[in-house]
Design a protein around this nucleic acid. Structure first.
Length: 579
RNA sequence: GCUGGGUUCGUAUAACGGUUAGUACUCAAGAUUCUCAAUCUUGCAAUAUGAGUUCGAUUCUCGUACCCAGUACCA
């Protein structure tokens, strides 16, 4: 009979979950949902020494942000699940809280001859290791060496019993069979065979802290929780033979889960697997959420960097898996439908920050203006602007909100104004947080840039590189002077061009026609051309005056947004600044 | 070192043993524009290597190189 699909994500709370871990959780989730089964979160905290405060909460928060919801596990709506219930029949899901259940399984293995007591102290083992290493070999606790070490196989029954009672630092080790070929099947890698002579006698139980090691706890819990597929990182592949043998030793072969070992996420330069330190070094986050460690060191997170969770999840899903065709945009529900372990790749994938950014851009464009506005408003408020629902809602006495919805004097804007700005600039942005940098001049006048911490000259990243400042280009005071190339100064930023721009501004002031962008744009261009002025030069000087930058939105856009009054004000300002 | 896993443009990837080796990102060029973006078009660019099997190999087998993981009383 087919068993109900049950998979688990079983992280260890030793620090923040990096994106490789998130992907493992994601694939587990996708698999479970596609099969109509359960996705379980279990916390493997059997190493008390490496426990990190807050890590478990971080893991849960991260998965929630990604939209990866567990059917069963440690957490329910922010509360730790302590006792079994209908929804969480196997609670608790923290191995430290389950410590009472593992010992009997370890004992069972000893009784059946699959495991034995080992009395070697860590110091003794360390010494044995060091000794062998001087000969250039590696010490392995296995069928060859266990005969020379102190354990229940080499000491008498009486002494063994005595040591078990007296000492508190013994362990139970798995007795790896000799010269046996373990035949395994992996859902991703196919058939694998390993000879047990290359394996060691792993510790299963630690007397000193009364806890099992990963290997024992993992097998016991997967069995008790009726896990049907174990989907985990490739770093576990070398311990797969041990896990197979453990299932066999327990007599649980019939219900042994199937295994799938996922390829690792590699650094962008291809050297080694992605690790926690890489992010800040390589300039992109390796964590879903921001993390501050005990030393106060901050690691960036995708959420804080402005990524949409949908984009992050989509990007992550495509690293090591593909649907078999050219599609690459997937919602998490679409991923559930399309996912299959058969199409997961064997080779490790290098993480590509550019593609992550591209995904975010694509998702940003799919969002409605309303949604983006809601995200942008708090940023504007942080910059000291007041955003109001309607023109009459302004709290400042005497504020005059224009028909467009802007009061530049009192820094008040209507939501409608913000939404129109968003609609105009969203295609130029990768992130919502870019909105402000793209067009600050739609909210504040260039004469206030310094007060608002805005850098004049909104150059693209590319053209920003090392531009020498030409003194003749100084139209604002030093703090606001954008760096110009000398050839551009001769081409655009001459006083005579500004004179023409002022005349064009006079035309704007007297313009009484349709003030929509299209109508106004053609009227302005027609006016400039009819006077036989150089269109590009006049327009650029206007932009410098109105936007405080040599590049940016179209003049007609800027003018119709800020309004005639503000145009006149900004023109007057720059007049006094020209040298 | 040993054991296991892996290897298609710079990156992510596609290709019943038969394709002109496709797509996306990045990059470059052109178009467009008042500038910058955006957009559109075009372009650059790959089967690690040597044998074998086969009429035919990116695809199957073996060797070599390189990369990764594991080699803990960590997970």
């Amino acid at each position: 009979m087919e068993r109900r699909t049950r998979v688990r994500f079983a992280p260890s709370p030793t620090g923040p979950l990096h994106i490789g871990g998130v992907r493992t959780a994601l694939y587990n989730y996708l698999y479970a949902k596609q099969k109509g089964g359960d996705f379980i979160i279990r916390i493997e905290d059997t190493d008390s020494h490496r426990f990190v405060e807050g890590a478990e909460k971080y893991i849960i928060d991260s998965l929630n942000w990604c939209g990866i919801k567990a059917d069963e596990g440690v957490d329910e709506n922010g509360k730790v699940v302590e006792t079994p219930s209908e929804r969480h029949p196997h609670a608790p899901y923290r191995q430290s809280q389950r410590k009472g259940i593992y010992k009997k399984y370890a004992d069972q293995l000893v009784a059946a001859g699959y495991a034995y007591y080992a009395f070697d102290t860590p110091e003794e083992l360390e010494k044995a290791r060091a000794e062998v290493e001087t000969k250039g070999e590696t010490f392995i606790y296995n069928q060859l060496t266990r005969k020379t070490l102190r354990n229940s196989l080499t000491v008498s029954k009486e002494e063994c019993d005595k040591l078990i009672l007296e000492r508190t630092d013994w362990t139970i080790r798995f007795k790896m069979p000799e010269d046996t070929v373990v035949k395994m099947d992996d859902l991703i890698r196919g058939h694998i065979e390993v000879n047990t002579d290359t394996l060691d006698d792993k510790v299963l139980w630690k007397r000193n802290d009364e806890l099992p090691t990963y290997h024992l706890a993992n097998i016991v819990d997967d069995h008790l929780m009726e896990i049907t597929e174990v989907i985990r990182g490739e770093e576990w592949l070398p311990s797969l033979p041990l896990h197979y043998l453990l299932y066999k030793a327990f007599g649980w072969e019939d219900t042994m889960p199937r295994f799938a070992h996922l390829p690792l996420l590699l650094k962008p330069d291809g050297k080694g697997k992605l690790s926690k330190r890489d992010g800040d070094k390589l300039g992109f986050p390796v964590f879903p959420l921001k993390w501050v460690n005990a030393q106060g060191e901050v690691s960036r997170g995708y959420r804080e960097d402005g990524y949409f969770p949908e984009a992050f999840v989509n990007m992550l899903a495509m690293l090591g898996w593909n649907p078999g065709d050219d599609r690459e945009m997937f919602t998490i529900d679409e991923l559930v439908d399309a996912f299959s372990l058969e199409r997961v790749l064997k080779a490790g994938a290098r993480f590509n920050p550019d593609k992550a950014k591209w995904y975010n851009k694509e998702y940003l464009r799919m969002k409605s203006d309303k949604e983006l506005t809601d995200l942008f408003v708090p940023i504007l408020e942080q910059h000291g602007l007041q955003i109001v629902e309607c023109a009459k809602c302004a709290l400042v006495a005497g504020s005059e909100i224009s028909v467009q919805g802007a009061d530049f004097t009192n820094h008040i804007f209507t939501v409608g104004y913000v939404e129109k700005v968003v609609s105009l600039i969203k295609e130029r942005a990768d992130f919502v947080k870019d909105f402000w940098d793209i067009a600050p001049y739609l909210f504040i006048s260039p004469d206030e840039f310094a007060a608002f911490g805005v850098k004049a000259g909104a150059f693209s990243e590319k053209s920003q590189a090392a531009r020498p400042v030409d003194p003749r280009a100084k139209v604002y005071d030093d703090s606001l002077t954008a760096p110009f190339l000398a050839k551009d100064v001769d081409k655009f930023w001459k006083k005579e061009n500004y004179e023409l721009a002022f005349k064009a501004a006079d035309f704007v002031r007297s313009y009484t026609g349709d003030f929509s962008k299209e109508a106004f744009e053609s009227a302005l261009e027609e006016y400039i051309k009819s006077n036989e002025w150089p269109l590009g030069k006049v327009m650029n000087c206007m932009r410098m005056a109105l936007a405080g930058a040599s590049s940016g939105l179209g003049i007609a856009d800027i003018v119709t947004f800020i309004g005639k009054k503000e145009v006149a004000k900004r023109m007057e300002f720059i007049k006094g600044k020209l040298i």
